[in-house]
Amino acid sequence: MQLIQLIIDGVASGCIYGLVALGFVLIYKATETINFAQGDILMLGAFVAYSLIGLMGMDYLTGFALTVLIIAVFGFFLDAVVVRQIIGQPAFATVMLTIGLGFIFRGFASIYWGTDIFSFSTPFSGKITEFNGLIISYVNLSIIAGTAILMSALYFFFTFSKIGVAMRASSENQLAAYYMGIPVKFIFSLIWSISAGVAAVAGVLLAPITLVDTSISLIGLKAFAAAVLGGFGSIPGAIVGGIIIGIVEQLCGTYENYLFEGVREISAYLVLILTLIIYPRGLFSDKAEVKKV
């Protein structure tokens, strides 16, 4: 019974990792760059939601939607104004650029909102439900449900909408897509915008658990483990990877005594390293990569 309880908690926190990892994957698939500032965008999302819901007293759902919209627009211009300038530069430049952006966001957040820990009330805060002796908090349920809804929405968007198909085409082959009249640059900015929006969703869903402060941006680093486990190219892989990481973390925390002290905090990183050593392409990688000469 305890095990199932742990797994449910793990799935909930894993969904957050999965959502952040999803942001990595979307951007990586399209532009072959990794946004190291993904966790910081999540943090911005949580702070904006705090401003809208906590400070301005907006209704939760309205505030939620508005937050996602604001962050998505922000993501769009982040790419259009800054990141686009270094497309085609070595991977190292993007890594450093996005790390720098992350620092700017964190600095901005602590200047604008301060370094205290904030919280805002949600319809789920503090409520729990019991099921066969399992205790499930509404917050966890909201995270799992939110992730499921978002995933299906993205799935339908990428499969059926014209712009979604254009995005898939651009990430398969930039040049061909460009020749077909797809505005590749615009599409890339749109992908940044979606991935920022997804991070904002994760930030708002997470806020009731971790509360809002600048340190939640560190989740972005753990989400790398999820993305790597999922193969860095697969959207369902990212979510599954996230859930695995979430569960592993819960298990390591509970059975710490049998393993070694402090294993919980680094379990995600250990999984990451092991994955990279054993399956360098991740568990869900769809194609073998051979570099063409």
Partner: peptide
């Protein structure tokens, strides 16, 4: 927050 912010700005400036 000024310190990380400047740190990030310098990094971004040099990369770009």
């Amino acid at each position: 927050g000024l310190e990380p912010m400047l740190f990030g700005l310098i990094l971004v400036f040099f990369i770009l």
